[in-house]
Simulated assay, not measured.
Amino acid sequence: MQLNLRSTSKFLTKGTWTSIINPMTYSQSAIEKLLNEGGYVMISAGRNNKMPSDRNLSDDTIQERTINLTIDLTNLYAYSSMMGVYNGDNETSFFVILHNISPNVERTVFIQLGHKYNQESIIYVKRTTPTIQQFIYTTGEFSGKYVEGQGYEVLTTNVTDDYSELKLCPDSIFKFTLNFDFGTVIIGKTRIKTRQLIDHHTNYVLTNQQKRNS
């Protein structure tokens, strides 16, 4: 189903979404408008290999968890399925349109969903000018911390890591990556310059590469 962003805002305000429209397929103009103006979340229920409790879960268990996330989203939010590669891990994620009525409440709701499905992080982008773009850690050693960024890049060349991929109407692929400053960690209102997160993600990518080569 193709999404018209203007009518979407009206429907979301009234809260009349039903399960028959999910998952949605966006037009390129609609997805670019969302990326430029904000008002969305990117979230997954996939395997979190950074958490020991997830590593030995069966594929069927992960699939069931993903279905449960779609149940949590359906009737409340419009969303599209999305493929991506992050830190060397392939996963199915969801690009979710927010209602933008109570942003702080919605941010908290999705942080809780990230924790519920044992995700290391979610991406929350508040609809404002300029957008507030946050990579929020929801489990693990960095839980409660986040980093911010601004803007995105459309990827037209072959890339192998750190990208998201959406199927668009009528039959095309939109591949992009969001920009974040992982050198500045935010805890509450405090900003800390550190390489801790950069090293964390770099080490995980190297570990994945070693596993594939062994």
Rank of each mutant, 00 (worst) to 15 (best):
N203M: 04
L34F: 07
R107S: 14
P130Y: 12
G144Y: 02
T138C: 14
D72H: 07
N90R: 15
H99K: 05
V125R: 03
L76H: 04
N158E: 14
F135V: 04
D161W: 07
D89M: 04
T138I: 04
Q196L: 13
Y86R: 08
N36A: 15
D181Q: 10
V109D: 12
Q196W: 11
R47T: 09
I31A: 06
K145L: 14
L166Y: 06
L178P: 04
P52F: 14
M82W: 00
S44D: 08
P23C: 01
V159C: 03
S53H: 04
R191K: 13
T129Y: 14
N87I: 13
S80D: 05
N100H: 08
S214W: 06
N4K: 14
T177G: 02
D72F: 08
Q119V: 10
T25V: 06
I198N: 15
D89P: 06
I97G: 00
P23W: 01
V205S: 03
Q119S: 04
T177F: 02
G183D: 08
I21E: 02
S80V: 08
A30D: 09
I62H: 10
A45W: 05
I186V: 11
N158K: 10
A45I: 05
T128V: 15
Q112L: 10
T25Y: 05
S27A: 15
Q2R: 08
L98D: 03
I101E: 13
V105I: 12
K10C: 11
N48W: 01
I173Q: 06
S7W: 15
L3W: 01
K145P: 01
